[in-house]
Nucleic acid binder design. Structure first.
Lengths: 195, 195
DNA sequence: CTCCAATCGCAACTAAGGTAGCTTTAGTGT
DNA sequence: ACACTAAAGCTACCTTAGTTGCGATTGGAG
C-alpha cells in the first residue's frame, strides 16, 4: 500500500520506529490519547516527517494495523465444532479484555470508524483472520457435524458479531457466557441450514 | 444527565438551538466534520457557551442522542416471528443507509467510541429500542412459534449484531439478504433453545 | 417591581495541531 | 569512490481548538 522507493535503509528504519512507537503509545494511552507529536518524540523521528508520511493519527494506526495483521493467530482444535467455535469467539473476547492488547485492538476499531484508510486495513485484517478461523467450521463439515452447504466464513462472522456489537456499539460488558452463547447461536443456525 | 437550574426561557432555547444545529451539522458533514465552532455559529449561540455547557463535540452528540432517543420507533407486525424479526433487522440496516438519517446514526456510534458520556447515552438508547423490538419475539412465544424460555432481548441483539458488525467493525457492505440471514440465524438459534 | 444569581456574550489569550521552505543526510547506481 | 536524489531534519510560521476573566442579560423568587 505504501510505495517506498528506497526500502533499504533509513526509510525502513524510520517506518519501523514509528510503527513501534505507535503501538506503544496506543497501549499506554489508547486511541484518544494518541498524538502525532508523541509518536514522533517517542520514535525519535521528526514530527514533520511523520506528518509527511502518515498524515494523521488514523494513518499511523492504519499502518500499525498492517504490522499487527502479520502476527500469527491460534486456531483452537478441541475435537468438536462447538468447542472450536467457542474457542474462537472467546479468543476474540479475551483479546479485547487483555490490558496490553485490548487498547491497541480497540484503537484499530476506533480509527477505522474515522478514516477510510484505516477501515480498508481493518477489513483486510478481518478477512484474513476469519479465513483462518473458518477452518474450524470446515473441519466440522468434514466430521459430518454440519451440512456441507454452510458458508464457513459467515458462521464465523455471525458467531463473533455479538461480541463486537456489545463491545463497540452497545457498550455493554461481555462475559464469557455471552461469548459461548453467541458461538452456540451461530452453530445452531448453521446446523439448521440458515448459514 | 444535564442539570438545568433555569429550565424556562433562554437556557432552554439555547439548548434547543444547539441540539438542532448539532443534528443538522452531523447530517451534512458527519461526525468527522463536526466542530464546536460550526455548531456555535449555526445555532447563533456563542462558542464559549457551547464549550461551557457541552464541553466537547462528543458531549454535543451525546445530548443530541437523548433527543433522538425520544423519537417513536415502528414495530413490524407481519403475523409471523420470521417476518417481524426480518423487519426489525431491515429497519436497522436501511436506517444507516438512509442519506439523511445514516450519517447522524453513524455519528452516534462513532462518538460513543470516543467518549464514555456518549457511550452511556447510546447504551440507554439501545436498551430502550431493543426493549420495544423484543415485542415481536414475545408475540412469537405467545403464538407458540418459540419456546417460552427464550430471552427476547437477547434474540434481538443477536439478530441485529451482524449488521452492526459489518457496518462499523469490518466495514463490509450490508445487503438486504445479509440482514434477512442474520434475522433467520437468530431465529434458528432461538428455536433451538440456545437464546 | 426589584433584586440576585445563573447564564450568556464578548474579546483577548494560550496551546496544540498542522504546514512550508529550505538544508542536510544517506541510500543507490555508475 | 562519486555524483545524484529521495527522504529526513530543522526552523519558522499559520491555523484552529479550547480557556479565562469580566461585564451584560435575564429568569425567577420574594
Amino acid at each position: 500500500m505504501e510505495v517506498i522507493k528506497r526500502p533499504g535503509g533509513r526509510s525502513a528504519r524510520v517506518r519501523d520506529a514509528v510503527r513501534r512507537a505507535t503501538l506503544a503509545e496506543l497501549g499506554e494511552h489508547g486511541f484518544r490519547g494518541l498524538t502525532v507529536d508523541n509518536v514522533a518524540e517517542r520514535s525519535g523521528v521528526h514530527k514533520t516527517t511523520v506528518y509527511r508520511r502518515w498524515g494523521t493519527v488514523e494513518g499511523l494506526v492504519a499502518d500499525a494495523l498492517e504490522l499487527a495483521a502479520g502476527e500469527p493467530w491460534p486456531i483452537p482444535d478441541t475435537g468438536t465444532v462447538q468447542g472450536d467455535l467457542r474457542g474462537v469467539v472467546e479468543l476474540v473476547r479475551s483479546g479485547f479484555e487483555d490490558p496490553e492488547l485490548g487498547p491497541v485492538s480497540s484503537a484499530f476499531v476506533a480509527a477505522a470508524m474515522q478514516s477510510p484508510e484505516a477501515a480498508r486495513a481493518l477489513r483486510a485484517f478481518f478477512e484474513a483472520r476469519h479465513d483462518q478461523s473458518a477452518q474450524v467450521v470446515r473441519r466440522g463439515v468434514e466430521r459430518g457435524e454440519l451440512p456441507v452447504t454452510v458458508d464457513a466464513r459467515e458462521v464465523i462472522r455471525v458467531a463473533v458479531a455479538p461480541v463486537y456489537y456489545r463491545l463497540f456499539v452497545a457498550h455493554e460488558p461481555v462475559s464469557r457466557d455471552d461469548a459461548d452463547r453467541a458461538a452456540d447461536a451461530a452453530l445452531a443456525a448453521a446446523r439448521a441450514g440458515v448459514l
